[in-house]
Simulated scan of single mutants.
Amino acid sequence: MARFHALRVAAVDRLTDDSVALTLAVPEELRERYRHAPGQHLAVRRTLDGAEVRRTYSICSAAPATGGPATLRIGVRLVEGGAFSTHALKEIAEGDELEVMTPAGRFTLDPAPGLYAAIVGGSGITPVLSIVSTLLAREPGSRFCLIRSDRTTASTMFLEEVADLKDRYPRRFQLVTVLSREEQQAGLPSGRLDRERLTGLLPALLPVERVAGWFLCGPLGLVEGAERALREIGVPRALVHEEIFHVDTVAPAPAAPAPAHSTVTARLDGRAGTWPVRDGESVLETVLRNRADAPYACKGGVCGTCRAFLVSGEVRMDRNFALEPEETAAGYVLACQSHAVTEEVEVDFDR
């Protein structure tokens, strides 16, 4: 069960004008709880101006081979109007404490021999940095191709960390950088990495048919374009893993008729309860009114923290940018985006 714990900020490193890396110290007694797979994320909670704010940030540090980590590192980029990102860049200092949820997420790679590739944009480098650094360190029979898109060199997060990987693994790590607003002296011409460009670029860069896994992370437009490009060049959907950052407002799915009276039954941390649904409430909102410990972070259908198994009944999800097709096929839903369609709905957060 996901839990929040207070972690001390051990370091604050400025990455770019609009981003920082926060290093969090993990006490020895909590290290097993913060054991993480490469690519997982943390939900951070803080009270700002009297209101609770939760945000999700991917772990960028490598996953330890054994035991739990002594430190965790996350990257925070300033979002226009973002309460927590503004607070992180201007006010968080070494020695502060943050409430941090134990790791979650399924945008992960279990290190194994083979060739892997990632297409990332902007802060989408964060989980992939953990994935590639863990893979190359643990598995000598692995190789990785990283294709990253940024606006300019000055705006590129973790520039030094990625360059260090290139120096350490020159034969096993291939780095391709595309800048959308700045010409490079060498490498690819500037411009966006859209579907059309990727369709021609990818087969020229690497043997597509030999890639064991593709990792797409960044803004919605980049990830959707990359997914379409991979589909066009024949990559099986099962090899493609996605994580979305920076989702703009998206119109919800067409509404299904809602029952006049409905209840939600939820199992959470071994205890179950049944509660009436108020008009317009999501499954998560109904549960939170009665169980404040229900897991959530973004409430936008992006992070997947509120993932639950639909035991019975039917729900409508407004949107889903977190669950893979095989997860929804197996019966999992995002509680924050789910609305009861039947009079009785039962979900299980423990599965």
Rank of each mutant, 00 (worst) to 15 (best):
R171P: 07
R172I: 08
R172Q: 14
F173D: 03
F173S: 03
L175P: 10
L175S: 11
L175H: 15
L175V: 11
V176D: 08
V176P: 00
T177N: 14
V178T: 04
L179V: 02
E182K: 12
E183P: 01
Q184L: 15
Q184E: 14
Q185A: 15
G187E: 09
P189M: 11
P189R: 09
L193V: 04
L193N: 01
L193H: 01
D194E: 14
D194A: 09
R195D: 07
E196Q: 15
E196K: 13
R197Q: 07
T199L: 06
T199N: 07
T199I: 06
T199C: 10
G200D: 09
G200A: 11
L201P: 01
P203F: 06
A204R: 15
L205E: 06
L206F: 07
L206P: 00
P207Y: 11
V208G: 02
V208M: 06
E209M: 07
R210K: 14
W214R: 03
W214V: 00
W214H: 03
W214G: 01
W214D: 01
F215D: 02
G218P: 00
P219G: 12
L220H: 07
G221Q: 04
E224C: 05
E224A: 10
G225V: 02
E227A: 14
L230W: 02
R231V: 10
E232T: 08
E232M: 08
G234R: 04
G234P: 01
V235L: 08
A238F: 11
A238N: 12
A238P: 03
V240M: 05
E243I: 03
D248Q: 14
D248I: 02
D248N: 12
D248P: 05
T249F: 11
T249C: 12
V250T: 13
P252R: 11
A253E: 13
P254T: 09
A255P: 07
A255S: 13
A256R: 12
A256H: 09
P257E: 15
A260V: 13
A260S: 14
S262Y: 11
T265D: 10
R267Y: 12
L268Q: 13
D269W: 08
D269P: 06
D269A: 15
A272E: 14
G273Q: 10
W275Q: 06
P276L: 13
V277D: 00
R278Y: 12
R278W: 12
D279H: 11
G280N: 06
E281Y: 07
S282D: 08
V283E: 00
V283A: 04
L284D: 03
L284T: 00
E285D: 14
T286M: 09
V287S: 04
V287F: 07
V287T: 04
N290F: 08
A292F: 08
A294G: 04
P295D: 11
Y296L: 01
A297P: 00
C298S: 05
G300P: 03
V302N: 01
T305V: 14
T305D: 10
T305H: 13
T305F: 12
T305Q: 14
C306Y: 01
R307C: 04
R307H: 05
F309M: 13
L310G: 03
V311I: 14
S312M: 13
